[in-house]
Write a protein that binds this DNA or RNA. Structure first.
Lengths: 220, 220
DNA sequence: CGCCATTTGTGATACAGTACACAAATGGGG
DNA sequence: CCCCATTTGTGTACTGTATCACAAATGGCG
């Protein structure tokens, strides 16, 4: 998606591609709300996002009628509804594996909390990193994973380890019951079909972009 | 995509969605190659990626005939061809704005180089961060941006600054001639149509995933 | 040397996603 | 109180994408 995604969604009542746009609507509507805007229209939102107003209306229509003809949408109300639909009207605990530079950046990021997520545990296989402090979390050894998940009922995990280790980490996560994985390692994981995976790999985006650029790179 | 994308691609000879899959093929083929595999088939690659073999063949067919009937594809050869198509058979200089935790992680990441990219400059607006060392790079003040780009002819930039600052940074980047932006800030940028933008926002992925999860979150 | 299993590249076909266009509300202004 | 500009929600047409299915190569094996 840029980056990529893949998973197994069968209850195809609402197309997955529609679900994928809802978080973007929500993000923008939240900005609108925080800047004091009370109402908006599908047209305004669409112009802002580079999406047709019809698409936004149709997407929303899968879940109900949230607008008022002639007026548009109440921003705060629509935010709340989207949060409910996406189930982020609460905070989900997230487990992070990998305490390298990236793990640090993720664990220190303050933008998760008010969008529905909180990293509640950091794990690393390296003896050197275990015990280290990141924000108000302490890096734990991988052995603790099982106990941790059963205590926290953590369904979501981030993999922020080197590519070589990622598949093993994923297997472990599945074993302890994690349902959804966000993988930062530049590989495609092999996983049972009931587990959701999405990927973040900046190089995929770069390579997508360079296709459209005229070559002006450092000679290799 | 996951995360999101948006840009302006007019030479629609090859659908953009096809271009978007090529980097994934390349990434996997490179892994195949590095593990000593000489040939592969669209079926094997497809099973590995969870994509139909027909799709892979059709995607590749937009660019030529790279396989041999009965045998499949020479892995090293196909890698080279994909690298040429995506223009990553060389190293692109990339400019990084933002030297916070995320900027640090990106600037220290060693996985860019052998996939066609190198961060050659790091910039930050904060006086405290300017002058600091990250790997073998020194954080520069924003004023240096213009000179730097004209020296390096940098077409690609990463925005790794807080959401509030991102649009201003983007404007600046456009002004100095950057053509493609990878934005880590959780907002949608408003940019002229000739500029490519892609976004990375983990929360978008999380919210996509929670839709399919049964609610089991910390009470808010 | 001929057969068979394999695999590519691709036209035809089926499917999914987007855009269009309009009836039905809504509210403000004259 | 009525008219008009606005905007939603949605059935329909259209466009784009993925799948199917098969002819044409290929190479190994008997």
């Amino acid at each position: 998606m840029t980056t990529q995604k893949s998973s197994a969604h069968d209850k195809a009542a609402v197309p997955d591609i529609v679900i994928g746009r809802l978080p973007i609507y929500l993000r923008t509507l939240t900005i609108f709300r925080n800047s004091g805007k009370d109402v908006t229209s599908s047209q305004e939102l669409g112009e802002y996002l580079g999406i047709s107003s019809a698409q936004i209306r149709k997407d929303l229509s899968h879940f109900g009628e949230f607008g008022k003809q002639g007026t548009g949408y109440n921003v705060a109300y629509l935010c709340k509804q989207l949060e409910k639909i996406l189930k982020v009207d609460c905070v989900w605990p997230v487990l992070l594996v990998g305490a390298g530079h990236l793990g640090h950046a993720l664990a220190s990021y303050e933008g998760f909390e008010n969008r529905g997520f909180r990293i509640t545990g950091v794990f690393d296989s390296s003896q050197e990193k275990v015990g280290g402090q990141i924000g108000n979390l302490v890096v734990q050894p991988m052995d603790e994973l099982n106990d941790f998940v059963s205590r926290q009922r953590c369904q979501i995990a981030i993999i922020a380890v080197p590519a070589e280790a990622a598949q093993n980490v994923a297997n472990l996560l599945i074993k302890v019951g994690v349902k959804s994985i966000l993988c930062y390692a530049p590989i495609t994981l092999t996983l049972p079909p009931h587990v959701q995976v999405e990927y973040i790999d900046p190089v995929i985006h770069f390579q997508h972009m360079t296709f459209y650029l005229s070559k002006g790179c450092i000679d290799s």
